[in-house]
Design a protein around this nucleic acid. Sequence first.
DNA 1: GAACGAGTTGGAACCGGTTCCAGACTTTGC
DNA 2: GCAAAGTCTGGAACCGGTTCCAACTCGTTC
Lengths: 340, 340
Amino acid sequence: MVTLRDVARAAGVSLATASRALSDAPHVSAGNREHVLRTADELGYRPHHAARSLTTGSTATVGLVVPDLANPFFAAVAKGVQARARETGREVLVADTDEDATLEQDVVGRLGARVDGLVLCSPRMPSDALATHAASGRVALVNREAPGAPSISFDIADGVRQAVAHLRALGHRDVAYAGGPRSSWSDAERRTALAGVTGGGTGDVLDLGSFRPTHGGGVQAADLALAAGATAVLCFNDLVALGVLARLHARGARTPQDVSVVGFDDVATAALVTPALTTVAVPLARAGREAVDLLGAGAIPDAPPAHRRLPVELVVRASTAPAPAGSSPTRTADPEVVIR
Amino acid sequence: MVTLRDVARAAGVSLATASRALSDAPHVSAGNREHVLRTADELGYRPHHAARSLTTGSTATVGLVVPDLANPFFAAVAKGVQARARETGREVLVADTDEDATLEQDVVGRLGARVDGLVLCSPRMPSDALATHAASGRVALVNREAPGAPSISFDIADGVRQAVAHLRALGHRDVAYAGGPRSSWSDAERRTALAGVTGGGTGDVLDLGSFRPTHGGGVQAADLALAAGATAVLCFNDLVALGVLARLHARGARTPQDVSVVGFDDVATAALVTPALTTVAVPLARAGREAVDLLGAGAIPDAPPAHRRLPVELVVRASTAPAPAGSSPTRTADPEVVIR
DNA sequence: GAACGAGTTGGAACCGGTTCCAGACTTTGC
DNA sequence: GCAAAGTCTGGAACCGGTTCCAACTCGTTC
């Protein structure tokens, strides 16, 4: 292994000069700089990351913590984080917490010590724990908001509004919501938005309940939607929507002729299934990129952390269509479970 | 920030003793060890990773390089790598190369300097470049084999055999292969296997050509399959198979009644689409885990690198069925493009 | 009672860089 | 022509750990 010492010796300069030349610092003559650079190149010198990190105190690394790397939602964010980090000369240390809030906290602690900043994507830990970690000032959140930490989230309320407006415009009166986990921050956002949007006198959205945010959760929700006589189902995310689609098909209900389905997130597969899914597209990669930039912005201490909400957009595909003509004018479900 | 020096001072022992106590080394009295440990805990001591790395020469980090994090194939491998690394007390530095062979080489160089070992998943770089990097002895390959580096790959030949046998058993005589990129190592493996398996006198498999390994590639292949009168299509991977499925549906061909479709990899969505995809399941997460273990096994220098092939398994779902009764006994395609 | 050895202990060197500081040299201004 | 200012340069301290080595303690054995 060739060290800076070797380069300095070969170039006939001191360690200090060699260091300055290579780190592009001032106080080196043009000739010396050039010479050192060439010598380093010839010797194949590669700076020792740990050594540099030890003195400078910076690791040139960002950490990324996600609940599940194999979930396309998080994978897309990870791709954005990774791309932006590379552009800014940093590497990415990634950790998958297997959707486990306890493991997540552990991981945040361990990873936090090794990076300049940490991007937490959809953290599962409770708010108070999150606040503790946020206090370090080196944390940025994605898809969750919390008082102490800067965050990138999505304009979920607007997405819900667009989705419901779309369905209403198609004549759907019996719209149902297949919700995500109660503990989920983003499910709470959707529900709040639904409660607001339905106040317009056009009728309420039926709450089918909370389901696991998976294909299986969607299967479960689909039966409830059929039983309730809904002609349209708005889903917590695309995975749930895919489950709804599959189950409706299996039960002989046609999509979109009999029942319309709307997803959330616009994951890659949403466009590839048949019928292609109408869904609310959220800029996942962009969120990852901006979260990385948020980490660099720790310039002004005690400034209130930035909460940025990225715009979303309903993408209309083949899973939504006008409500069937003879759809029931009266609701069959218990009014108790309506979202307010 | 609390350093080892602080702990030593607070515990009333020397730096050396404190270090030994915390790294669980011998030559510390039980009393002292206990006392140091407690003091460190009270002070909230966290070892400084860069400092430790500087002296020990080990980074407790593995690097992972993948062409595309958002591709579920690589995401699954990444999850395995991540899990195994955590179990063995290491972190994962991940890099996404955007399917770019040039960027990949660059990334391997930069990442390589910061990790103890590097897992290269489906590397796109040419063999000679791969050999150069493999010479460092700290590289493990996934889904590709090369002379100089240990690797984890899949028993693709067996997968192809199982898939073709399945289709033959269903009475399909006109089986077509929708191939992946010519430069792909794993496409070459599939073709070699196809050439071998079709020699059994049961007829050849028609080569539809090479397609981008995406949904779009599958759409393209589907039209060629229909034109060639194939009753079954074996696809390079699941993404291509999904494209084939979608296009067949759009063109009014029913799956599996008219045309059967088989994928490769058993990505998560394969089971979720309608009809559910028959596909060759490969143990992706396991491959990631074992690749990490391969990195630790640099014990015997100059030992020939291990090439391990993990078993695969055909998963029969709803996209394959007996060949239609009246399928043409004669082939309409040019015999030149048959795989040999 | 002295020699011996095993078990502990702390001082100091070291890992590979960055940066402060003092000194040498060059340029500029009056 | 000389002082002041500025530019380069290299020695050395330092970052926070690990580990070598010498010294020291104590119990054991002859």
